[in-house]
């Protein structure tokens, strides 16, 4: 029974949310508000459950975990944001939270995000018996250099007068960088389309097709709501 109700609710809400594609209407707003409210309530409940399992549950094990009281107190200081007099106390919690996050990330970031990425672009410019690999390596190196050159904002070779070798190399690299980025953006755009179409397919296969009856009922109601919205406007 619960699965049936869940299936109906999912199908109906999806159709009503998608009805916005044609026109804003009362059923779209109902679905939108229900979603926001449910998601907020669910997130609060889940966060409390997580706090219970990661903090209070641990502390119940014994004194060795009582140091967890410190992050709990720091977390509670966030609520001082609602006080005009004591809002400054919240800054300690926020500050330590940001500092811990930054410190953890920075500990490994130079190796993970800089050195390994630079290493990955140091490639052989000639691969014996594999012209495609050679071509790819050249592309990778030139586009990386071109992209980096394009984003140099502090130094430009002089462009006035006769172009010297530095100017020519600079311009060539910038052009390669621009075309490389354009190809990258195209790749990104194509993948975006694939994802959005994938979402649409998933919605049809996972929610609408299994509850076709609910879909039809929701569509009829959405058409009525849109008609009302149009009439109201006139």
């Amino acid at each position: 029974m619960i699965e049936l109700i869940g299936g109906w609710l999912a199908a109906v809400m999806i159709v009503w949310i998608y009805s916005f594609v044609y026109k804003d209407n009362v059923l779209y707003r109902l679905a939108e508000h229900l979603f926001v409210g449910t998601a907020a309530g669910y997130s609060i409940a889940l966060s409390l459950d997580s706090l219970n399992r990661t903090a209070f549950g641990q502390m119940a094990k014994g004194m060795e975990y009582w140091h967890l009281i410190i992050p709990i107190i720091l977390g509670l200081t966030f609520f001082f944001k609602y006080s005009k007099k004591y809002y400054w106390i919240a800054r300690y919690g926020v500050g330590i939270n940001v500092a811990v996050g930054a410190a953890l990330a920075l500990r490994a970031a130079p190796m993970a995000n800089i050195i390994r990425q630079i290493n990955a672009t140091i490639l052989p410019l000639w691969v014996e018996g594999d012209p495609l690999k050679t071509f790819n390596n050249w592309l990778m190196i030139l586009i990386t250099l071109g992209g980096l050159t394009y984003f140099i904002f502090t130094f430009f070779p002089k462009t006035e007068g006769k172009a010297g070798p530095v100017n020519i190399v600079y311009k060539a690299l910038v052009t390669i960088g621009i075309y490389g980025m354009m190809v990258g953006f195209g790749y990104l755009f194509a993948n975006t389309i694939m994802t959005r179409v994938g979402f649409l397919i998933g919605i049809i296969l996972q929610y609408l097709q299994p509850r076709f009856d609910a879909t039809v009922v929701a569509m009829i109601l959405a058409i009525i709501a849109i008609a009302f919205a149009v009439m109201k406007k006139k």
């Binding site: 953890l104 990330a105 500990r107 490994a108 970031a109 190796m111 993970a112 995000n113 390994r116 990425q117 290493n119 990955a120 990258g184 790749y187 990104l188 993948n191 975006t192 694939m194 994802t195 994938g198």
Partner: peptide
Amino acid sequence: VRQWYTAHNIPLLFGALSVIGPSIKPYVDA
């Protein structure tokens, strides 16, 4: 990548949305 691979050298496998693919490919290439 930072907390499991770099710090502990544990192999990672990514399952991502198509739109995320270009952003995480550098990790795989490296």
